[in-house]
């Protein structure tokens, strides 16, 4: 199972770097978003030390993960329409290796873009420490697996890219919007605060925030948030494996 999965994951990475538009889109869009929102809201923001550019920094890493995982998921629909997927399904490679290959490939791509972005932290006054980077690296990896698996789960059921865009706008984007990336949990109305607590991305982002700025930590304790994100990632991968198992 490992060889087919790794080969499929490698394909994701090779394909990605051969489509320049995707590289630019996934990397530049979130950074642009961060600079515009951060600089625009600037010091009007009262929470998080009063600097929005700094507050929005950790959430941008999640957004990079989200964008990359959406693009990777779209490739599942293209593979189905183009016939690549059929040839994999007709091979003796276990169904689960398809899930693993796609999810690991998508997650790796997200991580490879989100992690280097952390190196920009000093530009907004967030000092980098080895331990902070190491923890953030682990949390980003778990969040990336979770997002890639959620993307796979929905893309597998979508027959068209247009249909998947609807899911993306209804499920994936709102998940990021209420993850604490744009506003802190502390000041939200109680129903929103609950929605944020139920969102696995909030836990992931809380861990990244704590790792980067221990003086201004996320809303949840670090070990617990790491455990929640990892657990959700495993559950999401299992859900994908169950979905694909029924495919003839």
């Amino acid at each position: 199972m490992i060889v087919p999965a790794l080969s499929l994951a490698r394909r994701e990475v090779v394909r990605f770097f051969r489509q320049r538009g995707r590289v630019i889109g996934a990397l530049v869009t979130p950074v642009l978003f961060w600079l515009i929102m951060g600089s625009g809201i600037g010091s009007s923001f009262v929470g998080g030390g009063g600097d929005y550019l700094r507050y929005a920094f950790p959430g941008t890493t999640t957004m990079i993960l989200l964008f990359t995982c959406i693009f990777s998921s779209i490739s599942i629909i293209e593979d189905r329409n183009e016939g690549f997927l059929q040839s994999v399904l007709a091979s003796p490679a276990p169904r689960a290796s398809i899930v693993l290959g796609k999810v690991v490939g998508g997650a790796l791509l997200g991580w490879l873009q989100a992690f280097p972005f952390l190196l920009l932290a000093p530009t907004v006054g967030i000092p980098l420490t080895v331990s902070g980077l190491a923890i953030a690296a682990v949390v980003l990896a778990a969040s990336a697996v979770f997002l890639a698996a959620v993307g796979f789960f929905f893309a597998w059921r979508s027959s068209s890219v247009a249909g998947f865009h609807a899911i993306m706008n209804i499920v994936l984007m709102p998940m990021w919007l209420v993850s604490g990336a744009l506003f802190p949990l502390a000041g939200a109305y109680s129903w929103m605060a609950w929605a944020m607590r139920l969102n696995p991305l909030t836990w992931g982002l809380s861990a990244v925030r704590t790792a980067l700025t221990p003086s201004d930590p996320g809303p949840f304790p670090l070990p617990l948030s790491l455990a929640v994100v990892t657990g959700c990632a495993i559950l999401a991968v299992l859900a994908c494996a169950l979905t694909i198992r029924s495919e003839k």
Partner: peptide, 17 residues
């Protein structure tokens, strides 16, 4: 599956590879 080779009507080669 291990005993058949299948060539589909729609191309299954990855065009970026």
């Amino acid at each position: 599956r291990g005993r058949i080779g299948v060539v589909f009507q729609s191309t299954s080669t990855d065009k970026k590879m």
